[in-house]
């Protein structure tokens, strides 16, 4: 009795403390999500957004029967895979290296975070220059070893690889720091006992570090998956005048870019809202799949 009453008395304080977050979330997170859902059931013209016509699920029907949608979905998936997988692997490797006692450790750690602090626009513009067909440095370097200039922008794989380079460059440091933080909380005696058992550096990494980092790795996978589904600024800016299509042949149009193109170039706000909601559902599903797969795998491994 006494115990329960006390818990109830304490109970209100935490709720009060978290309330501001949820109020702000309701206003700027939940409401837009629900309102976007509402908009997606209407035909709304950007030129005249105050008037809208109820169309039910028509926007979704059109979206799912549109080649542009499936193309964007596929691009989002391939760009997501070729940027997220290397990104996390490289980050893990770098974190492992930074975890050694290095001279100038702080410098390296700060330097790692610099790309993350760079704006998408600035980074993309610089990289578009590097990937330029006629005057780009990458083609110049390739030319030094006798490779013909590559028109990075026009090919599906070349452009998507260029984009994955930009994305990887921007996010490796961020993920590396998170891994590093996770690594530093691994108790040193685990390594010591592993070393006594005769485990090599690699075996220590494989059997001590990685299992200890499970929750951290799961976190970065979830965050990167969400980021990958929302990729927008890089393809838009990389494409210059054809950025809103994701290249002249939509070869790197992602879902985010499709949303922008339909809403702000084609003025179809209701349709764009349907794209937005579809992206939201895909993200939720992807995150659920990620977490269940990861849990099951680790449970089996354990």
């Amino acid at each position: 009795m006494f115990k329960a009453r006390r818990r109830a008395g304490q109970g209100s304080a935490p709720y009060l403390f978290v309330a501001p977050f949820f109020l702000v979330f309701a206003a700027f997170g939940l409401f837009p999500i629900l309102y976007t859902a509402w908009v997606s059931l209407h035909a709304v013209d950007l030129q005249n957004p105050n008037e809208s016509t109820w169309v039910g699920l028509e926007n979704y029907r059109k979206l799912f029967s549109s080649d542009f949608f499936w193309n964007a979905l596929e691009n989002t998936f391939t760009i997501g895979v070729i940027s997220t997988v290397p990104q996390l692997c490289i980050a893990l490797g770098i974190a492992h290296l930074l975890n050694y006692r290095l001279r100038g450790r702080t410098f390296f750690r700060v330097a790692m975070l610099m790309p993350y602090a760079t704006s998408v626009a600035a980074a993309t513009l610089v990289f578009s220059g590097l990937f330029g067909r006629d005057f780009g440095m990458i083609n110049w370097l390739l030319g030094q070893v006798g490779v013909n200039p590559v028109d990075w922008d026009s090919g599906r794989w070349t452009s998507q690889n260029a984009l994955s380079t930009i994305i990887t460059w921007r996010w490796v440091g961020y993920n590396a720091l998170i891994y590093l933080a996770g690594m530093q909380s691994v108790p040193a005696d685990l390594y010591e006992s592993a070393a006594i058992d005769g485990a090599s550096r690699w075996q220590q990494f494989r059997y001590v570090t990685i299992p200890s980092l499970r929750p951290t790795i799961l976190f970065t996978i979830v965050v990167s998956t969400i980021g990958a589904i929302q990729v927008f600024g890089e393809p838009l800016l990389f494409g210059g005048v054809s950025g809103h299509l994701g290249g002249a042949g939509r070869q790197y149009q992602t879902l985010g870019v499709l949303l922008y193109d339909e809403g702000w170039f084609n003025y179809k706000l209701g349709y764009a809202a349907a794209v937005a909601w579809t992206m939201f559902v895909i993200i939720v599903v992807a995150v659920l799949v990620n977490t269940t797969l990861a849990r099951r795998r680790w449970r089996n491994a354990a």
Partner: peptide, 17 residues
């Protein structure tokens, strides 16, 4: 099809709006 007017103040939710 029903045409209805949305409350103007609500329209601002989409990012650029």
């Amino acid at each position: 099809r029903i045409t209805r007017r949305m409350p103007t103040a609500l329209v601002g939710t989409l990012a650029v709006a």
